[in-house]
Structures are given as structure tokens and as C-alpha cells.
Design a protein around this nucleic acid. Structure first.
Lengths: 143, 143
DNA sequence: TGAAGATATAACGAAGTTCGGATTATTCAA
DNA sequence: TTGAATAATCCGAACTTCGTTATATCTTCA
């Protein structure tokens, strides 16, 4: 199978660059003291993995556990996260979202959802499915 | 025209999340003391806009000019960037890349190119064009 | 001309973030 | 029962961001 052309590669690069900027703007216009990049990632991960441990999160996000500890500190301090010692292994803690944390995570997800909605709206209903199928194909290869 | 479905939105969100992670990894495995996120952005911008001024870059990247000043300081200190007073307006400086800076920018671009290549390779040649066309359509609306 | 105001950049410092190196508590294995 | 491994945290140094302030240089217009 022939290789992608340089033009195609360049076009893709430009598109992604624009995406990155849009995402950043969508974040930026959120109110209050904005959470650090890492903290947002932690919040979203915990939302999807209630009860996980700090080490899990650190491994997933590719940061040292000490860094993650700082992040959870900040989130706990803001009342977004709860740390609970668990019985099974008393060295470990289980992370979970507080009501406020869950609300914050929801609002982040919603902001992204709006952005995605806007994006897909530019395509015809037919194209949407084809686009999703292709982008999923690109991403789903776990190599 | 009907709205995108929630399933479509969710699928798109998942895909982008994965993209973000891949990009971050592509960055992470670069050697040497890694550049700060901002510094990389500055380097790439200057590569595309030789001779631009710090204020241009700050406006484009959406950061205060003082922050950008720090970034250019770091890049100059590492020998990646040159600052030259220009004659037309002696308050201003023109930014340009040193040989090392250009090399670094090239290697960053190349890393992204590889990533894009890998992505597009998962699609058939036909799909590639259609995919690019759609993603461009999504992005090109300057609303 | 020559002051007032605008503009480009840099210096400084406070607040916040990351991460390596201890440290503590607990579990596991021989 | 030790000793090694593991989960998490504390501490401190180095770095980043960004508001305030300072400096130099244009621009304008009376």
C-alpha cells in the first residue's frame, strides 16, 4: 500500500495544531482559579476510575508519583477529591471525587462535548459516521 | 439538519483524548533536558515566522509578553534563538533561530510527521483524502 | 522643537508546579 | 522473624508563569 503523501501529512498537522488551540481556548475561558493541567487530567481520570490509587493515576499519566501526590494535595485542598485508606491494603489510599469534584469534572466534560458538537455540526450526517469510523480506526490500533 | 448523536460525540472525545496522549508521548521521548511547553511553541512559531517580534508571538500564543520574555530568555540561553535589534524600530527586536534552534525545530516537526504518518497509514489511500477533507472542513470554519 | 503619550522589551519578585531523594507504614517471601 | 518490596507522602531545590515596574524608543501635535 502506498504511503501517505507529504501534502496529506502537512494538512493533518495543520488540522491538529488548530485543534490544540481550540481545546486550549475552551479550557481558558473556564471561571475561577484554573486548575493546573495535571490536576484536570487527574480529576477526569478519577471520575472514570472511582476508587483507584495514586500510583495507577501516575502510571497512566506518565508522571512521577511524587508529582501526582502534589496534584492530589491540591485537589483535596480545593475539596474536589477525597482520599480514603482502604482495608484491603492499608498502605494504599482510594481516590474518589467529592460532589464538587464531580460537578467540576462534569462541567469540563460538558465543555469538551460542546466543542465536539460544534465540530461535528460542520459535517453532514452521513459524513459524521464515516469520520468517526476513520478516526476510531486510526486510534484503536494499540501498537 | 439533525444534530450529532451522543454516541458520535463520545466517540470523538475518546479519539481526541487518545491523540493528546500520543502527542505527549511523542514529545516525552525526546532527548536532553526537555524544553518547556511554551518554549517549544515559541520555537515552532519562530521557525515559521523568521524575524517576528516577541509581541507577535505572545499574542499568537495567548500569553503575557513578560512570560514570553522569559521563554525567549531560556531559548537564547540554550543557543536556540537569536535576538537582534532592528533598525526600523529600535525598540523592537527580531527573533530568529540559530542553527541549533532550527535543527531542534526540524526534529520536533519530524517527530510529529512520523506520528501523522503512522496515523494515516492505518487508512486506505482512498480514505486518507476523504479524512483530510473532512478534518479540514471541521477546522477551516473561522467562526 | 519638545513635551506627553504610546509602544516594545526587559528586570524583578511572588506564587505556584514538578520531581529527585529521604521517610513512614505496610505487606510479602524465605 | 527478618529483609526486601511496595504505597504513599514529606521536603526542598529548580523552574515557570505572570503582574508590577523600569527603560528605551517612537509618534504626535501644539
Amino acid at each position: 500500500m502506498s504511503d501517505p503523501t507529504e501534502d496529506q501529512l502537512a494538512a493533518l498537522g495543520t488540522a491538529f495544531e488548530t485543534f490544540a488551540r481550540r481545546y486550549k481556548l475552551a479550557d481558558a475561558l473556564r471561571s475561577e482559579r484554573p486548575l493546573a493541567e495535571l490536576d484536570k487530567a487527574v480529576l477526569l481520570y478519577v471520575a472514570e476510575h472511582e476508587g483507584c490509587g495514586p500510583t495507577d493515576v501516575a502510571r497512566f499519566l506518565g508522571v512521577p508519583t511524587t508529582t501526582l501526590s502534589s496534584a492530589t494535595d491540591r485537589l483535596v485542598k480545593r475539596g474536589f477529591l477525597k482520599r480514603e485508606r482502604i482495608e484491603a491494603d492499608r498502605r494504599a489510599v482510594a481516590l474518589s471525587l467529592s460532589a464538587a469534584g464531580a460537578a467540576c469534572a462534569r462541567s469540563m466534560v460538558e465543555a469538551y462535548r460542546q466543542l465536539h458538537l460544534l465540530m461535528l455540526s460542520r459535517l453532514s450526517p452521513d459524513e459524521r459516521d464515516r469520520f468517526i469510523a476513520m478516526i476510531t480506526k486510526i486510534v484503536d490500533d494499540d501498537s
